[in-house]
Design a protein around this nucleic acid. Structure first.
Length: 478
RNA sequence: GUCCCCAUCGUCUAGUCCGGCCUAGGACAUCGCCCUUUCAAGGCGGUAACAUGGGUUCGAAUCCCAUUGGGGACGCCA
């Protein structure tokens, strides 16, 4: 067990797919555990399955980690580059008798499993080659680890508590394929030993692997690290989270306009809690994080709460920062030219000001960029229904008066604009709404927008008057 | 089928370890009201849970057992 030595944890995804929500949470908890304890966070790529691992997935995983600001201190290490190390370990196990060669073919094994399933027997390996006297010739064997068949193995899990396994149910698992490549359950242990991992924090789908791995540690001559098995994340149907439940890659969440801090905040609260607090800054998370506050039961991923949290972050993120983050979205739909920089082409101060009027209305960056479009575009299409209702003979005089008042305004601030509106409503003896809505439709083309005074101010005199003029021309034609 | 894990509002959770403070708290969602130039945001309030059955105890959401339900593992995948 780890004593006073420095905490060393790792996140070890296999590059057989994108970084998904479940993976992120495992990475996050390891990262928080390391940061909280002043330890080391290692990134290791488990790519021993050469047929399914790709460099694209590795890059995608790294991209996801960077987006989430989960920085690693060592790595990324690739297991495919460490085959020599595994090989020598396996040779030693073979010599000492802790491992043995298995001559069963995959087809045979498959056959036996099927039969066992049909007869309702346990699907475990029957140990046929365990004590084979004369190895058959002409067969390239795989290598199996010899599990003890008596006694029990106790896992003292940091999250689940004490879990006891009877050794006779531990399978002699294959640690090296017949093609000479090592398998997961073995390389994990070899690497964790080699990298000095003190705490293994992973999904509880690995809990059953743990007793087996503990025996491998001991065969390798090492004490096992501490284990902590995190509960799974489920979809709304309570089934394990998968592609069927929508976005499978975290990058998809970025593209849907989620802020990485919001996603992190949401994910950390899935299973972990700190009293009644819901919103945490990074520093707070690091300070408060502890394995003891992680629940034992699986949690359902709830997109609505994630959206709410994202909205909270939209409201508190500085507009200058949002301006940077929303740029890619603005460019994606052509609102802003692909080469425009916010520093010169588009006034950063102006953009931030515009964003400030929208942060409590936009739940995502996508929504923000869509709303921003109405400010940025030279002209806006006027919604037919809105035009019919608010741009007509009745409202025309108001529009004209407002336009005139606006053009004669000294300066073009919200305050001055408000005064213009006050004068007009008084003059006609009407309520603010009677004139605000027509103007809103005139300049924004729709009935919903931020407050009309701030909208006009953001738009600026020139653009506002131009749009109003156009609307006045079009009034009554809807 | 065998083994392992889990079980508080629809969802995330506090409370469970060290029984009484729990007529079970917060958050999301939902419903209603208020605010209001629209849409939001915000404020206030409501509906809503200790899976079931047995124990133990003066007393159980909290401890024990069983049942039920859910999840996971049983690969020459990780």
């Amino acid at each position: 067990m780890p004593g006073t030595e420095k905490i060393r944890v790792r996140f070890a995804p296999s590059p057989t797919g994108h970084l998904h929500i479940g993976g992120v949470r495992t990475a996050l908890f390891n990262w928080l555990f390391a940061r909280h304890g002043g330890g080391v966070f290692i990134l290791r790529i488990e790519d021993t399955d050469r047929s399914r691992s790709t460099d694209e997935y590795i890059e995608s995983i790294l991209e996801g980690m960077r987006w989430l600001n989960l920085d690693w201190d060592e790595g990324p290490f690739r297991q495919t580059e460490r085959f020599d190390i595994y090989r020598s370990h396996i040779d030693k196990l073979l010599e000492s008798g802790r491992a043995y060669r298995c001559y069963c073919s995959q087809e045979e094994l498959e056959e036996k499993r099927k039969k066992a399933a049909a007869e309702g027997r346990p699907l475990s390996y029957d140990g046929r080659c365990r004590d084979i006297e004369t190895p058959p010739s002409g067969i390239t064997p795989s290598v199996r680890f010899r599990m003890p068949k008596e006694g029990r193995t106790v896992v003292d899990d940091l999250i689940k508590g004490t879990v006891v396994f009877e050794n006779d149910q531990l399978d002699d698992l294959i640690i090296m394929r017949s093609d000479g490549t090592p398998t997961y359950n073995f390389v994990v242990v070899a690497d964790d030993v080699d990298m000095g991992i003190t705490h293994v924090i992973r999904g509880d789908d690995h809990l059953n692997n743990t007793p087996k791995q503990i025996h491998i540690y001991s065969a390798l001559g090492h004490a096992a690290p501490a284990f902590g098995h995190l509960p799974m994340i489920l979809g709304e149907d309570k089934a394990r989270l998968s592609k069927r439940h929508g976005a499978t890659s975290v990058i998809a969440y970025r593209d849907m306009g989620y802020l990485s801090d919001a996603l992190v905040n949401y994910l950390v609260r899935l299973g972990w809690s700190y009293g009644d607090q819901e919103v945490f800054g990074r520093e707070e998370l690091i300070r408060y994080f502890s394995l003891e506050n992680i629940g034992k039961s699986a949690a359902v991923f709830n997109p609505e709460k994630l959206l709410w949290l994202n909205a909270e972050y939209m409201k508190t993120t500085p507009p200058e920062r949002l301006a940077e983050l929303v740029m890619p979205f603005l460019k994606a739909d052509g609102t802003v030219g692909p080469d425009d920089e916010i520093d010169d082409e588009m006034d950063k101060v102006w953009l931030s000001k515009a964003i400030l009027t929208l942060t409590e209305r936009a739940k995502t960056l996508v929504e923000l960029s869509k709303s921003l479009r109405y400010y940025i575009l030279e002209h806006v299409e006027i919604d037919e229904k809105a035009g019919k209702k608010f741009l007509n003979e009745k409202t025309l005089p108001y529009l004209k008066d407002i336009k005139e008042g606006l053009s004669g305004l000294e300066g073009f601030t919200g305050e001055g604009i408000q005064k213009v509106f006050n004068d007009i409503t008084q003059k006609h003896g009407i309520k603010l709404g009677a004139v605000a809505q027509p103007v809103r439709v005139a300049v924004m083309g729709k009935t919903e927008s931020p407050g009309i005074f701030e909208v006009l101010e953001v738009l600026g005199r020139e653009k506002a008057l131009k749009r109003m003029e156009k609307a006045i021309q079009a009034a009554g034609t809807f």
